[in-house]
Simulated assay, not measured.
Amino acid sequence: MTAAATPLLQVNGLKVSYGHIEAVKGIDFELHEGQITTLVGANGAGKSTTLLALSGLTKKAAGSVRFAGEDIGALAPHKIVSRGVVQVAEGRATLTTLTVRENLELGAYTRKDRGSRARDLDYVYSLFPRLKERADGLAGNLSGGEQQMLAIGRALMAKPRLLLLDEPSMGLAPIIVQDIFRTLREINKAGLTIFLVEQNVRQALKIADRGYVLETGKIVMADSGRALLGNPKVQDAYLGG
């Protein structure tokens, strides 16, 4: 897919610190509309912290974050969501005492047009038929894979322009991981821009238009997903040679 001339999201000099520990050390990267971009690296590299900073859930120490030409770096999280940047948190964070349908409807809480919300609910059910089957059941009774589907579906109900995903494959059986990544490709083909943070480097790079490799808070490589997948350094460090 051809990249747009102007990035949809542009990050410059992003730093995030926890006390005296600098978790993200002045990184630069950009996301282009209609693409899947992935940020990969070992556990503790700073991947999730980067996403939290983009969402406004963690305060950045320095740097700028521009989305669709607007500086969103100082906005509150709900304002960032209203701009069209929506995150699927690590660990799913479904509301277990609510039904599947209620969880999905909560994703659209900022939207007033009931007709479009109903159409998007049908769209989510078409992506994840299992959620439709379990719509009136409690989210807490879903399997891990179903809860991940629910978390993605709930984010889609917010009508994002950019979807941020934090470790969607974590703790899931390989066959479920394949299903999740297949769905991500499908929603991307429908036009949604995706930024994927993922420890499953092989799966992430397979579907990515572009990838960045993060090591101890610094971006050390950037290239197309295909090129990084074939890079000997990436293979040695993350793909078992």
Score class of each variant (00 low, 15 high):
Gly56Asp: 13
Met1Gln: 13
Thr110Ala: 15
Lys233Gly: 07
Asn12Gly: 04
Ser143Asn: 08
Leu162Asp: 02
Val234Met: 11
Pro174Trp: 04
Arg66Met: 15
Phe128Gly: 02
Tyr109Gln: 08
Glu215Gln: 12
Asn103Ser: 05
Arg117Asn: 15
Arg101Thr: 14
Val85Pro: 06
Tyr238Leu: 05
Val234Asn: 02
Leu98Asp: 09
Ala151Thr: 09
Tyr212Phe: 14
Ile219Leu: 13
Glu105Leu: 14
Val65His: 11
Arg101Trp: 12
Glu146Tyr: 12
Gly191Pro: 02
Ser169Arg: 09
Glu133Lys: 12
Leu104Gln: 01
Met157Gly: 10
Phe67Glu: 05
Leu142Val: 05
Leu184Gly: 00
Asp236Asn: 13
Ala62Lys: 14
Met221Pro: 10
Leu150Tyr: 06
Gly107Thr: 13
Arg117His: 11
Val234Ala: 12
Leu95His: 08
Leu163Val: 01
Val65Arg: 05
Ala45Glu: 09
Ala227Met: 09
Gly34Cys: 08
Gly107Cys: 04
Val220Arg: 04
Ile152Lys: 01
Gly13Lys: 03
Asp71Lys: 07
Ala151Ser: 15
Gly240His: 10
Met149Tyr: 13
Thr94Leu: 13
Gly230Lys: 07
Asn141Gly: 15
Asp223Ser: 11
Thr97Pro: 06
Leu162Phe: 02
Lys112Ala: 14
Gln87Ala: 03
Gly73Glu: 11
Glu70Val: 14
Leu164Cys: 01
Gly171Cys: 02
Thr216Asp: 12
Thr96Phe: 09
Asp179Leu: 09
Ile176Phe: 07
Ser48Cys: 05
Val81Trp: 10
Ala108Thr: 09
Leu156Pro: 09
Pro129Trp: 06
Ile180Trp: 07
Lys159Glu: 14
Thr94Trp: 05
Leu39Arg: 01
Gly13Ala: 12
Thr110Asp: 13
Val11Tyr: 00
Arg111Asp: 06
Ser169Gln: 04
Pro232Asp: 10
Gly137Ile: 03
Val85Cys: 06
Leu95Arg: 07
Ser55Phe: 11
Arg182Gln: 15
Phe67His: 04
Gly241Phe: 15
Ala158Asn: 12
His32Trp: 03
Arg134Gly: 08
Glu30Gly: 02
Thr6Val: 15
Leu127Gln: 04
Ser64Tyr: 07
Gly144Met: 08
Ala76His: 10
Tyr18His: 11
Asp166Asn: 04
Phe67Gly: 07
Ala89Met: 15
Met149Trp: 09
Arg161Met: 04
Arg185Ser: 08
Asp120Thr: 13
Ile152Arg: 00
Arg83Glu: 14
Gly63Ile: 12
Ala62Tyr: 11
Ala237Lys: 01
Phe181Ala: 01
Ala227Asn: 11
Val213Tyr: 08
Gln178Ala: 15
Gly217Glu: 06
Leu52Glu: 12
Lys25Tyr: 02
Glu186Trp: 04
Asn103Val: 02
Ser48Trp: 03
Val81Cys: 14
Gly191Glu: 05
Leu142Ala: 03
Thr38Tyr: 00
Ile187Cys: 00
Ile180Ser: 07
Leu205Ile: 00
Leu14Thr: 02
Val88Thr: 13
Glu33Met: 00
Val65Cys: 09
Leu8His: 00
Asn43Gln: 10
Ser48His: 04
